[in-house]
Design a protein around this nucleic acid. Structure first.
Lengths: 208, 208
DNA sequence: TAGATTGTTAATCGATTAACAATC
DNA sequence: TAGATTGTTAATCGATTAACAATC
């Protein structure tokens, strides 16, 4: 991996390709051209071919792309063909929502454990995920390290928790707490999901 | 509003400015320079000044920006100084999470009603938000139209529901269903919050 | 083969950064 | 006033689009 520099713009489109190709596969479509793919996704055909050529060509002139093998290539580039482990920290409503409804497997993850500070939750299970005492976080990690920490706890605690899990040695943080965490500062990969930013953009759009 | 074209790149940064300025205000900071703002946000000072100049200058040479009035300007540009109304459609875990924990007011919104198909939920309240029968959606809207529909129902139903609320006349859709909805197709503003895309990007980052 | 479609190079477009005169 | 910092113009950089030879 990591042979060549891939621009953030391209990376942000990878999940879209992945999703679209899965849908084509589900619908039994065997081959697809850059222009059809582009049309489905609101991109241009040029862009699609340009994007794929970052990773070497996957297509065949005059034919297009084989859905099955292109999907496999994209999945492998993203890394969703492997299984990474994740722990959820903070089992409020949002934590519950993720544990219950989110399809981690399609993103290359398995949710292995959850942590909370609430005594009423500690020791219980949601689905087959155990909720453990947040105090056990570090000792648990030493015995059973996980790749990614999912931050769904109150925002006041987010900065300290991010520092802690980064120091523990997670490789990434999936952050729902509406504080901005910086990769440089923490030295791990971070994906911020800021509901407020998203709704403010919608606010702007409808206010125009 | 809408006098001049503002690029999507600039628009996406507006919520960040807004959040940062609110924090400065909360901390009692009275003035700020483009370079301090840039440092806080991981932008460049040039970019900050360039961004603000899209809307006319808000600063003063040799001084910088007054936090209070810059915040007011940005808030007004985004539209969060007005109160828009929103209805949540689908009160599962995620819907619950939003109703209970999300600060709609800071984004210029008031959550006025919720809809679900589950008879056990219909007629109950979360906080002070009534849950109504999804069958009443259209009749309710005619009497009490809302600006934005928040889609937190199962993804299978999302496309039809988006079509329905767009036809009813909402001005925007805040979409959590992991299907891609297109503005052109529906003719309303759309903000997609795709958890899966976000986690796949994190997957890519940690796989490199 | 003829038609279709890729991969890639070149051209265009837009966004970011640098520089600096204006001025508080 | 001198120092600081803006707003804006010009330069750079990067991303998207167009074009087309290669070829299945």
């Amino acid at each position: 991996m990591s042979e060549r520099y891939i621009s953030p713009s391209v990376i942000r489109r990878l999940p879209k390709y992945h999703r679209c190709l899965k849908e084509l596969q589900r619908n039994g479509v065997g081959r697809v051209s850059s222009s059809v793919l582009a049309h489905n996704l609101g991109f241009t055909a040029s862009q699609v071919r340009q994007d794929f050529s970052c990773f070497g060509g996957f297509g065949q002139q005059g034919y297009g792309y084989n859905v099955e093998s292109l999907l496999a290539e994209i999945a492998s580039i993203i890394g969703v063909d492997k299984t990474h482990s994740a722990a959820i920290i903070g089992v409020g409503h949002l934590g519950h929502a993720l544990v219950n409804n989110f399809r981690f497997a399609t993103c290359g993850f398995e949710l292995t454990v959850a942590f909370d500070a609430n005594p009423e939750l500690i020791g219980t299970k949601i689905g087959d995920v155990y909720i453990r005492d947040i105090k056990e976080l570090e000792s648990y990690f030493e015995e059973a390290p996980f790749d990614v920490a999912i931050l769904t706890m109150p925002r006041e605690l987010a900065r300290d928790m991010a520092r802690k899990v980064a120091d523990m040695g997670v490789r990434g943080i999936w952050n729902f707490t509406n504080v901005d965490l910086s990769e440089e500062e923490l030295g791990v990969s971070i994906e911020n999901v800021h509901f407020a930013d998203s709704l403010k953009i919608l606010c702007y759009e409808i206010s125009k």
